[in-house]
């Protein structure tokens, strides 16, 4: 189980990196944390003439709040996003979701940009990104553009990136004061890839929910927002019973594909459960706030 031949390119500046990518975009694969890519290379499911390593590019990591956005550099390690007080304060949903990503030694290397670009429907961070309508910043020698997470993910393991573009930042909205959030997943084992994920954020006024955002991952080719569930919460008091009701609604509104180890019906049930659990967490964090 050894990777095929390639040339490893290790630029140190963003401009160089984009230039390298622009030379032969179709023959170049970007390497971030390598926690998804290298297994695929070792098994030769991915082969490439050129590997563009972003690990030495300066200025691609780090988190900061800019206005109403939490800006997460693409090369920010999962572990940093999990533990950073800045993230915990500005976007606790992301920090919470990060705890579920693989194991510490995976999170020490794996990156936020990498998991976004990898676009695995069951991955935790993409689910959060869709729920919060995060913006994915793409850069190339041609310029810079931003895509909404919902537009960036176009299929399981597929994204809307042009071959000469790199993900350079991910922008998450800063949490509105007093908003509630929850993240739940179902995995067969601790640290294993989940079968489904759910991310929830909502605001509250006079005890009633508004502006709810709910996304589930693993229930289709990409994580998706569940508009019906969101409206079902609008203007109602979040209770255990409502959480269950919305969970059921969520299960009805998705149609996951059958897979060898997991049937459609079971996955649908899991959607019910994780949506409910995410809402229950939101409820708990509401209690904490009070």
């Amino acid at each position: 189980m050894k990777p095929a031949q390639f040339q490893l390119l290790q630029p140190t500046t963003r401009a160089e990196a984009l230039a390298v990518l622009a030379e032969q975009p179709d023959e170049t694969v970007i390497l971030a944390g390598g926690q998804s890519l290298v297994p695929l290379m070792n098994m030769r499911f991915v082969t490439a003439e050129r590997i563009l390593d972003l690990n030495r590019v300066s200025g691609l990591g780090g988190v900061e709040v800019r206005g109403d956005r939490l800006v997460v550099g693409a090369m920010t390690r999962h572990r940093e996003a999990e533990l950073s007080p800045v993230v915990l304060d500005a976007c606790p949903l992301l920090a919470h979701a990060e705890r579920h990503v693989g194991y510490v030694s995976i999170r020490n290397r794996g990156t936020v940009g990498g998991t976004i670009a990898h676009a695995d429907t069951v991955a935790q961070v993409p689910c959060v990104a869709v729920a919060l309508d995060a913006r994915i910043v793409l850069e190339s020698v041609r310029g810079r553009r931003e895509l909404a997470a919902g537009d960036f993910f176009v299929g399981n393991l597929m994204n809307a990136r042009e071959p000469d573009e790199a993900v350079t930042e991910v922008h998450f909205p800063v949490r509105p004061v007093g908003s509630l959030f929850g993240f739940a997943e179902f995995a067969r084992k601790v640290g294993d890839f989940p079968l489904v994920t759910a991310a929830v954020r909502l605001e509250q006024g006079a005890g009633l929910s508004r502006s709810a955002r709910i996304a589930v991952g693993g229930a289709g080719p990409t994580p998706v927002r569940l508009a019906e569930c969101e409206s079902a919460l609008e203007g109602r008091e979040l209770t255990g019973a409502l959480a269950e009701e919305v969970g059921r609604l969520a299960a009805e509104s998705v149609s996951p594909a059958d897979s060898p180890f997991v049937s459609t019906d079971y996955r649908r049930n899991l959607v019910r459960v994780v949506v409910r659990r995410a809402l229950e967490q939101a409820l708990d964090c509401g209690e904490e706030l009070r």
């Binding site: 067969r188 640290g191 294993d192």
Partner: peptide
Amino acid sequence: LATTFLDYLMPGAT
């Protein structure tokens, strides 16, 4: 179908 440790689940410490 269970060709790697991602599909062949080994019991872990938890």
